[in-house]
C-alpha cells in the first residue's frame, strides 16, 4: 500500500521533471531559432514560400469559418438582444466578440490544426528520412535553413489570418443581422464604431494573434524537430502539436485578456 503510494508520487515527480525539462529544451530551441533568423531575412523568398504553405493554404478554412461564426453570432445575438429591445447593439456584440476573442482564438486554433500539424509532420518526416542530417552534412544549419523560415512565415501569417477571420465574421453578422433579419444598418455600424476602440480592441486583438502565432509555431516546430524519426513518432508528435498548442492558446488567451481588458 505504502509502496504503491510512493511509486505513484514518484511517477508524478518524474513526469513533472520531464515536462519542465522539455519546456527548458523548447525555450532554448526558441532562442536558437531567433538567433539563426538572419539567413531567412537575407533570403526573403524562403519566408515567402512558408507564408504560402502556412498562410495562403489556410485561407479557405479561415474565411469560411469566420463567415459562419459571424453568422451564428448574428443569429444568437439577435435572439438574446431582442428580449431587451436592444437589437441595435447587435453590431457591438458581434464585432467585440470577434475582434477581442473569437478572431484571434478561433483563427489560432484552426491554424494550429491546419498549419501547425503540417509543420510538425513535415519536419518530423524530414528528420525521419535523414534530410535534416543530410543538410547538416552539407554544412547547412537546418535551424537557419528549415526551421527559421517556417517560424517567420507562420508568425507573419497568423495576424493576417486572424484579421481576415474577424472581418469575415463581422460581414457574416451583417449578412444575418441586417440583410436577413432587418436590423437597422445605420445603427448596426454606428453603435459598433462607437464601442470598438482601435487601440484597446483591434490592436490588442492583433497582439493576441501574434502571441498565439509564435506559440503555435514554436510548438509545432519543436515537436517536429524533437520527434523520434519513425512513423509512429511523427504521428504522435503531430497529435501532440495540436493538443499542446490548443491548450497553450486558451491559457495564453486568459492571461492576455486579464492584462489587456482588466477594469474595462
Amino acid at each position: 500500500m505504502m509502496q504503491a503510494l510512493i511509486g505513484y508520487i514518484r511517477g508524478i515527480g518524474r513526469r513533472t521533471v520531464d515536462r519542465v525539462w522539455r519546456m527548458g529544451v523548447a525555450a532554448r530551441f526558441f532562442l536558437l531559432v531567433l538567433l539563426h533568423s538572419g539567413t531567412s531575412f537575407r533570403r526573403f523568398h524562403l519566408i515567402i514560400r512558408e507564408i504560402f504553405t502556412a498562410g495562403v493554404l489556410s485561407l479557405i478554412i479561415i474565411l469560411v469559418s469566420g463567415l459562419f461564426v459571424g453568422m451564428v453570432l448574428g443569429l444568437q445575438g439577435y435572439e438574446t438582444l431582442q428580449t431587451y429591445g436592444a437589437e441595435e447593439s447587435l453590431g457591438v456584440l458581434v464585432s467585440l466578440s470577434l475582434v477581442r476573442e473569437l478572431g484571434p482564438v478561433v483563427a489560432a486554433l484552426l491554424f494550429a490544426s491546419r498549419a501547425g500539424s503540417a509543420i510538425t509532420a513535415e519536419i518530423g518526416l524530414m528528420k525521419a528520412t535523414e534530410q535534416i542530417a543530410a543538410m547538416e552534412m552539407m554544412a547547412v544549419d537546418p535551424i537557419a535553413r528549415v526551421v527559421a523560415p517556417r517560424f517567420w512565415g507562420a508568425v507573419i501569417s497568423m495576424p493576417l489570418l486572424a484579421a481576415l477571420f474577424s472581418a469575415m465574421g463581422v460581414l457574416g453578422g451583417y449578412l444575418v443581422g441586417v440583410v436577413l433579419i432587418g436590423v437597422d444598418a445605420g445603427s448596426f455600424w454606428s453603435q459598433m464604431q462607437a464601442a470598438v476602440d482601435f487601440k484597446e480592441d483591434i490592436i490588442n486583438g492583433v497582439i493576441k494573434s501574434v502571441v498565439f502565432g509564435i506559440a503555435v509555431t514554436i510548438i509545432a516546430l519543436f515537436e517536429g524537430y524533437d520527434a523520434p524519426p519513425t512513423a509512429e513518432g511523427v504521428s504522435r508528435a503531430t497529435t501532440r502539436t495540436v493538443v499542446t498548442s490548443s491548450l497553450a492558446i486558451l491559457g495564453l488567451d486568459f492571461i492576455l485578456t486579464a492584462f489587456m481588458f482588466r477594469g474595462v
Binding site: 507564408i51 495562403v56 485561407l59 493576417l160 484579421a163 455600424w189 470598438v196 482601435f198 483591434i202
Partner: peptide, 23 residues
C-alpha cells in the same frame, strides 16, 4: 499568391480599423 494574401490581410485590418472601429 503571397502578395494577394498579404494585401487581403491588410485590407481586413483596415476594414476593422475604419469600418468596425473608431479610427
Amino acid at each position: 499568391w503571397v502578395g494577394l494574401f498579404v494585401v487581403a490581410g491588410i485590407v481586413a485590418v483596415l476594414f476593422l480599423a475604419l469600418k468596425v472601429g473608431n479610427l
